[in-house]
Design a protein around this nucleic acid. Structure first.
Lengths: 198, 198
DNA sequence: GTCTATACACTGATAGAC
DNA sequence: GTCTATCAGTGTATAGAC
């Protein structure tokens, strides 16, 4: 992407490495606080550069930067989530625990906030792209896993509930999460699979 | 509150009624899109007045307005949630379904976004007040209900998971929620209580 | 690649007329 | 109660030096 900036291989390495720092900082801040709450100065400050310098790496401006890192993050989520579900073992419980571990290893994504606060703030076309990517990256693979494991209608509800709970665990403030978040997730997955009374 | 504005009873009625409109519009917008994403002009536009006119009803400005409607909303949630849990019947399932119905009847609150995006944008003291109110209004009553019904550790995890799922259902875009949200909530509560295999 | 300087729009907030 | 007018501060974005 944006290979136009890279004329020689040796140069390209440097360019993409520097650009990576920008994208990573932007992704971290956007995913943590949302599009409206994060300013370009916040991102620049995290990189210890000035706001205007961001335009060298992200000539498209704030919205394009947000869309790029969000789509990138969703694509990474899709790949990691599908891999986790595939390698999590034959039973649903193990698959879900692997999926939760994967999600907890990534920068937290607040899908509710993305849909209700971030999407209305950007152009309709870009919002539609992100919506579709989020659907394919998160809901679809989880829905398939539930569908394959339990004979129940509305597997998509279960996928959505799973996503909501894991996201909520991920976004707990540090003060509220002294036990590892993975343990919380495992605990709640056991409840989901076996029921409260077990 | 702010009774200083009311000198006569007859005047007071008008004042509080007009003020109510402002608070309701502010609460709706803030709770839907978050503190940073909503401008005073957005609120004024929803009321069909000019931005400066808001300062008659909310002399404290944007942050004070946000804190007031948020605390008000949380207090309403606390009262309604406790009532629902009390009147939901003897079994946990009925209590949770009543609680979900209550929450779905209210303007949706995105607690994750509140904690991660809205709180950092306001003063630390006000943020602490809201955090404490949210804890007491939502987590505490639900935790007590789980604790009373099932002999399990970590009832607070279950309370948090319940909140996350109901909030997520509440915030689904209309396009994704043709079946009544109450049915989704009931479905997922049944899964929670009885387990996936049932 | 990063900087300074700056243009321009938007936002929160105040003052004062009606 | 609501308005117009206005201001300072902030945010995005561009131009150009180094």
């Amino acid at each position: 992407m944006n290979r136009a900036l890279c004329y020689y291989q040796v140069k390209c390495v440097e360019v993409t490495a520097a650009r990576e720092r920008v994208l990573a900082a932007a992704e971290q801040l956007f995913s943590a606080h949302g599009y409206a709450a994060v300013t370009l100065r916040d991102i620049a400050e995290a990189l210890d550069i000035k706001q205007a310098s961001l335009y060298y790496h992200a000539p498209g401006g704030k919205e394009a930067l947000f869309v790029e890192v969000t789509l990138r993050g969703l694509e990474r989520h899709r790949a990691g989530l599908e891999a986790a579900l595939r390698t999590g073992g034959p039973d649903l419980s193990g698959q879900l625990k692997a999926a939760a571990r994967w999600m907890l290893s990534q920068p937290p994504m607040d899908f509710n906030r993305m849909m209700r606060s971030d999407m209305p703030a950007i152009s309709a076309e870009q919002a539609a792209r992100i919506r579709a990517a989020a659907d394919e990256a998160l809901l679809t693979p989880l829905e398939a896993a539930f569908e394959a494991a339990v004979s129940r209608p509305h597997a998509v509800y279960l996928a959505g509930a799973f996503l909501a709970v894991v996201s909520a665990i991920h976004m707990l403030p540090e003060a509220f999460a002294p036990p590892p978040r993975e343990e919380m997730a495992d605990y709640l997955i056991d409840v989901l699979v076996r029921g409260l009374a077990s």
